[in-house]
Nucleic acid binder design. Structure first.
Length: 575
DNA sequence: GCCGTTTTCGGCCCGACTGTTTTCAGTCG
């Protein structure tokens, strides 16, 4: 039994119950349990007692345990026997929720997408109470588009779309200020749509301009405070929501629509205990009937004597703390170096000098040049001779540059566990990264023994993108991350938080565990182009999500401190 | 179904928008 199946089973139970008209809180309890399971990084086997997880209680835990033990869930099977399973996907269609799907099933005998589609074509839907001509049209249109677009898009793709929208908004007139909100602002790995908050005195004027944006595929809704569209950008259709508020309401709205939902719920509960009510328009005081608005999100938190929480950390867990208990979150300004990047020597786009200049412009004091090693022929990996030549050049450049370059390499861990260069070669390199780029399909034992050989090599300083995943595109190889972290701690090898939005590898939950295990983290962009050095912001965002201290991030260390660290034997590095 | 420095019962965030109504239910975030 794998975790994904358990999550899907819990979700299916919730959906069946929704259609049956079960108590909504019961329904959401099952949904919440599915999310709780999804959020913890452990595999199913690694979770000892599911009931201990936040959001999982006796009832949902028993479903999980039964699935683990027998591979089946009695509750699920009973529900499935009472309703056609073709009904489940119907809830993904717009305008259809549990109540309406239940009605369609009971009154029209609709059992799946196909019968629903036929009912639309036969115009049977529009005569149902609660439905109408427009509902029928919308449902039919959505069925035709079903499966042609993904439910969630990766942060990398969404960020590109957001950049485009940002440029459009900048050009509009009548906007006082605007900002990205939602899961993209929280640096979630995947997002469903892109949310923006716009402060304006003239919502009508903004609305008109928004509805004239290039590339609108469909207008979902256009009210006084909300414009919701589907935007075609290149070959992608992405949902975009704009909220129009007054400037006074801006901070409250931004907070509200940044979420997460769970974070908002916690804030609202807290407010309620104080006799106040939180909405996207501010904080309503039930005693004096006044609604307080705030200049900034920070002011909002401080109103409740809470420390500011950056968007990435708004998880609805334990991030709400009193001002006096504020712990500093890492920010891009703390970053002094980038320790993984490529140049034209292998598959990068720029020379060493160009990368160095770009890094210096970002205010970095030092960087590591880490081109690919010889095994990676497709990336023009460097032979021992070329690597030595490159390092010679780097040493010479250090005399003329105002940023310090560390000699480095991103060395392949070969399919048989051998490293791509001999120790004799590695011992003179300032910063040695090891990583896997081949034979992804190997069994976990093989992958782990490859990683182990790199971790326990005396010269390997860092394991880059440890799981090899590409968000939304590739799962990565079979890594036991807990074991990897344990070995990293034992061997004195740091782990990477690859900041590329395609990777974000390791993910936040693992980064947290690594730091708790005493392993320092390097947030690196792995940039193959100088513009990609900007990806550092995503990595720092994930670090904030992980809630790790600034000092656990190697890139925040001064050049001197890093060099001293790297000169230590690995066994003496982690203290 | 879950949860608990007002606890083992009685709450569970709050509001917008749409399409259907003729004052509101359902959906959505």
């Amino acid at each position: 039994m794998d975790k994904k199946t358990v999550i899907q089973t819990l979700e299916a139970i919730a959906t069946y119950m929704e259609i049956k008209g079960e108590n909504t809180f019961k329904v959401s309890a099952y949904k919440k349990a599915a999310r709780a399971l999804e959020t913890v990084p452990e595999t199913l086997d690694e979770i000892d007692e599911a009931v201990k997880l936040d959001g999982i209680g006796k009832g949902t835990a028993s479903v999980i345990e039964e699935l683990k033990a027998t591979g089946r869930s009695t509750l699920h099977d009973e529900l499935a026997a009472s309703l056609p399973d073709g009904l489940l996907p119907l809830l993904k269609l717009p305008t259809l929720g549990g109540k309406k799907v239940g009605k369609l099933y009971q009154e029209l005998g609709i059992t799946d997408i196909a019968t629903l589609r036929q009912a639309c074509v036969d115009h049977k839907i529009q005569d149902m109470p609660g439905f109408g001509v427009k509902s029928e049209e919308k449902i039919l249109a959505a069925i035709e588009a079903f499966n042609t677009r993904p439910e969630r898009i990766s942060i990398a793709v969404a960020s590109k779309a957001a950049d485009y929208i940002y440029e459009q908004l900048k050009k509009m007139s009548g906007i006082i200020q605007f900002e990205l909100a939602g899961s993209l602002r929280r640096v979630e790995e995947t997002v469903k749509d892109i949310d923006w908050i716009i402060a304006t005195e003239h919502p009508e004027q903004i609305k008109d301009q928004l509805l004239q944006l290039d590339g609108i595929a469909q207008v979902i809704g256009a009210g006084d405070t909300k414009v919701s569209i589907e935007l075609g950008i290149e070959d992608l259709v992405v949902g975009v929501d704009f909220r129009l508020v007054t400037n006074g309401e801006f901070a409250s709205a931004l907070l509200h629509f940044t979420g997460s939902k769970e974070h908002n719920v916690k804030l609202r509960q807290l407010a309620k205990e104080r006799g106040e009510q939180v909405s996207e328009y501010g904080v309503f005081n039930k005693e004096n009937g006044e609604t307080k608005v705030f200049e900034t999100e920070e002011d909002f938190y401080h109103h409740f004597d809470l420390a500011y929480v950056p968007p990435e950390a708004r998880l609805g867990k334990d991030e709400l703390v009193a001002i006096k208990d504020q712990k500093p979150y890492p920010s891009v300004a703390d970053i002094q170096s980038d320790l993984h990047m490529h140049t034209v020597w292998s598959d990068g786009a720029h020379s060493i000098q160009e990368m160095a200049h770009a890094a210096a412009e970002k205010g970095y004091t030092h960087i590591a040049i880490t081109d690919h090693s010889q095994y990676l022929k497709v990336a023009n990996g460097l032979t021992e001779e070329r690597l030595k030549e490159q390092h010679q050049q780097i040493k010479e450049l250090n005399n003329s540059l105002d940023i310090h370059l560390l000699t480095g390499v991103e060395m392949d861990i070969l399919p048989d566990g051998q490293l791509d260069y001999p120790d004799e070669m590695l011992k003179d390199i300032d910063f040695v990264i090891a990583s896997i780029h081949s034979s992804f399909q190997q069994k976990e034992e093989v992958i782990m023994s490859r990683l182990k050989s790199a971790l326990f090599n005396p010269h390997v300083d860092l394991i880059a993108h440890p799981t090899g995943r590409l968000i939304g595109r590739r799962e990565g190889y079979a890594v036991n991350v807990k074991q990897l972290i344990k070995w990293a701690a034992e061997s004195g090898t740091a782990l990477e938080l690859n900041a590329s939005p395609q990777r974000l590898d390791l993910k936040a939950e693992w980064i947290k565990l690594a730091v708790e295990s005493g392993v320092p983290i390097a947030i690196n962009t792995d940039a193959h182009h100088k513009d990609r050095l900007a990806y550092i912001q995503y990595g720092v965002g994930i670090a904030r999500k992980a809630g790790i201290p600034i000092d656990s991030i190697m890139n925040t260390w001064s050049k001197e401190r890093l060099i001293t660290y790297l000169k230590l034997e690995k066994s003496k590095r982690f203290k």
